[in-house]
């Protein structure tokens, strides 16, 4: 009983014709004879958060490294549409341009804040570095911006001259986020951003991330093995196993009605709190 009215299906609402921010196409990475990730393809639009889940060794970190331009894929393309509107294959760019993107329009939040922070300099300098790299040359402005961002990530302003070694793990991670977001990037890559943190600290960080993502309309790719993290942060989800994407879709659909045997196993293995 199909009504003529109902048959008029619009396959692509207006929003779908917007150009994507990031397009991955056939991204494959081999380490010699060992597979990192194989034939990964997706599109990411401004303001969208994509979660990538899978167990250790499933290739999700390799994929993230390829997407963020830190590891060149054996095959495939990663195309980014920059602020200027030009779509560029990031591995066809000269390294200087790629680095410029990484420190201006992108952010990269590492699992271990020690890898993403300069532990030997103050919190203020950690936040200010990206501004200085972007050409800021006014100390007062840089410090003001650092101070503002410390507050945003809920770190007391009087810690601005303290080194991150004196911070707790959760504070270090929040500082890393501030350091990445200070230049208002359009795309942020996160590798297990809540890994290694206490549950209560995780909740605070998730809340903060969610607020910042919404406030700045950030697009993000978040790699994690924590399904609770993606349920709260990610609009869409990709499930990886053995280097390949086995299932993808809306986050709640993939988690609540998983289709692939591996996803079902992953979801059923989580202890219900």
């Amino acid at each position: 009983m199909r009504t003529p009215e109902a048959a008029r299906v619009d396959p692509s609402p207006a929003t779908e014709t917007d150009p994507p921010l990031l397009t991955a196409d056939g991204v494959t990475r081999w380490y010699g004879h060992r597979l990192g990730c194989r034939d990964v393809a997706f599109m990411l639009w401004p303001g969208e958060v994509l979660g990538i889940v899978g167990e250790s060794g499933s290739g999700k970190t390799t994929l993230l490294d390829c997407l963020s331009g830190r590891l060149s894929p054996t095959a495939g393309h990663v195309v980014y549409r920059g602020e200027d509107g030009d779509a560029v294959d990031i591995f066809a760019l000269p390294e200087s341009r790629r680095r410029l993107l990484q420190r201006t329009e992108w952010g990269i939040v590492r699992q271990n804040p020690r890898d993403g922070l300069r532990m030997g300099v103050s919190a203020g300098a950690n936040i200010g570095e990206r501004l200085m790299a972007a050409g800021w040359r006014h100390y007062g402005d840089i410090r003001g911006s650092a101070d503002e961002w410390l507050q945003r990530v809920e770190i007391d302003g009087d810690r601005i001259d303290d080194r991150p070694v004196t911070f707790s793990g959760g504070m270090q991670q929040r500082l890393q986020i501030a350091r990445n977001l200070v230049t208002r990037p359009r795309l942020v890559f996160m590798d297990e951003p809540t890994g290694g943190l206490d549950v209560s600290v995780q909740a605070r960080l998730l809340d903060l991330l969610r607020g910042l993502v919404a406030e700045f309309g950030l697009a993000a790719v978040i790699v994690t093995h924590d399904l609770a993290v993606v349920r709260l942060l990610a609009h869409r989800l990709m499930v990886m196993q053995g280097g390949a994407v086995v299932e993808s879709g809306l986050t709640d659909q993939v988690l609540d009605d998983p289709q692939h045997p591996y996803t079902q196993l992953l979801v059923s293995s989580v202890l219900q709190a």
């Binding site: 300099v121 570095e129 601005i160």
Partner: peptide, 22 residues
């Protein structure tokens, strides 16, 4: 060396920033 090659010099002002902060 890569930083020199790419004139990726933001970090140099970090040192001066730290001086002023301290």
């Amino acid at each position: 060396r890569r930083m020199h090659g790419l004139a990726d010099y933001g970090v140099m002002h970090v040192k001066l920033y730290e001086d002023i902060a301290q």
